[in-house]
Every structure is written in C-alpha cells, then in structure tokens.
Simulated assay, not measured.
Amino acid sequence: MTADLAPGTRPSGRAGRPAVAGLPRWVLLPAAVGAALVVVPLLALALRAPWTRLPSLLTTPAAVDALLLSLRTAGTATVLCVLLGVPMALVLARSTWRGVRVLRALVLLPLVLPPVVGGIALLSAFGRRGLLGESLEVLGVEVAFSTTAVVLAQTFVALPFLVVSLDGALRTAGRRHEEVAAVLGARPTTVLRRVTLPLVLPGLVSGAVLSFARALGEFGATLTFAGSLQGTTRTLPLEVYLQRETDPDAAVALSLLLVAVAVLVVVAVRGRPAA
C-alpha cells in the first residue's frame, strides 16, 4: 500500500518525475517554442524602443492626431457593434430555421477575410460609383475617404468579435431562465431586458472590449476604403506604417503604444478571476 500523502501534495505520473497538469513532458518543448514566437518579437520591440525620446515622439502633432482619431473612431465603431451585434447574436443563438447556419457563416466572414478585401468590398458598396454610393452622393453624402469610412471599416472587421462572444454566451446560458420568466407572464422585451442581457453581460462586455481592440488596430480595410489623411482618416496603425519609412524610431514608439493598449485589453478580458 502507498503511504498517505501530505496535505496539499499531488501524486506525480512517475516517481521523481513531477507532472504538469497530467501532461506528457514533451508537450513543454513546442509550448515553449510557441511562447517564444510571441514573446521574443515583443521583447525585441521593447529593446529597440528609443525610451529617452519616447515622450517627444508620442506627442508630435501627427501622433496625437492619429491617436485621438483612433480612439474616437474605435469608440464609435464599438457602439455600433453593440447596437447591431446584440440583435444579431440573439437571432443567431435563438433561431431554429435552417438558414441560420448560412447567416452565421456570412456574419463571421470578416474574421477570415483579408482586411484589404473588406476595404474593397466597402468601397464597392459605398464608394462614389458603388452600389449604394451613387445614391448617397446624389443626396450629398460622401462616405468613402472620410472619417465615416474609417468607422464603417472598423465596424466591418470588429462586429464579428462581439457576435461570436455573445452568441457563445447565449448558447451556454440556455433558455431555461427565459422560459420561466415567460411562463410567469413577462413580455419578450421584459425577458430580454431583465433576464437575458444580465445573464450574458460578461460575454457582452468581453465582446465589446475585443471589438474596441480590433477596431483600434484596424489597418487594411481603413487604408483601402478611407485613405490616409491626417486628422481625418489617418489612424494610429496608418501613422505607424507611414513613420516606418521616414522615422523608424517614431514607428517603434507608436507600436509600443498600440502594444500597451492591447495588453490592457487582454488583461480586461482575460484577467478576471474565475468565479
């Protein structure tokens, strides 16, 4: 018979070989390589950064304009993602008709499309000669190569992140609580407001934060559909791309700023303690 283990200790797979969550030891090597693939470039970026010049590089008029424009447009895009994505996720999660799988695939398509393809698609729809752009131009509304185009491009690529997050939360939560509320006489709108949304609020918040981060880092669709005009359409990723050719130190400094925002987003979404 084996001796009793001390409190708080765990048995290992073999004597003298501590296990890592019951996994074989060979898993550690590819895991370490994968971690290095992510960490080493970020470490190199930090070592390359001109830390003494960082304040001056981040406070140039072009950098400030790009940062403020990115925050403003990404915030607006996130609001649009919530207003449009919540109903879309509800329809996808609660529908039973056969075509819902096709609809889900179309909604999630921007996740796998190259951003530049999304920009061309937006330009084909809202450009001066686009499907809707010609009619809008008659009304005096020009969308392409404007701040509105930036918001539309960011919404196009960020919306699926909120839909995926909320759709998963709705499926996990099930319909039991909603059915009980309906049996007790609550109207559908009341059930949605008092039961469904509070139940999936963590998923909604996570989706909104991820959408904001994706909108803030959008580059390809924005460049294709909105162009790069300082103060109007040149967001922070576009400024990084332009500075890479003229002032590499400024590009590194702005890249660090985007990395810092991304770290805050990851901590906000994944750093909460488990219930």
Rank of each mutant, 00 (worst) to 15 (best):
A3W: 06
D4G: 10
D4F: 08
P7F: 11
R14S: 10
A21I: 09
V27G: 06
P41F: 09
A44M: 12
P50K: 06
T52H: 15
P55N: 06
P55A: 03
L57F: 05
G75E: 01
L84T: 04
M88Q: 05
W97R: 08
W97H: 14
R98W: 14
A105Y: 14
L106V: 14
P110K: 05
I120E: 00
A121W: 02
L122K: 01
L123V: 05
R128C: 08
E137K: 11
V138H: 08
V141I: 14
S146I: 03
S146V: 04
V150N: 01
A153F: 07
Q154T: 10
T155R: 00
F156H: 04
A158T: 07
F161V: 13
F161Y: 15
L162P: 01
L166Q: 00
T172H: 14
G174L: 05
R176W: 02
A182L: 13
R194A: 11
V195S: 00
V195C: 07
L197V: 14
L197D: 05
V205S: 02
G207T: 11
L210K: 02
L216F: 15
G220K: 05
T222L: 09
L223W: 03
F225R: 00
G227M: 06
S228Y: 05
S228G: 08
L238D: 01
A250R: 02
A250E: 07
A251Y: 05
V259H: 07
A260C: 11
V261M: 10
G271D: 10
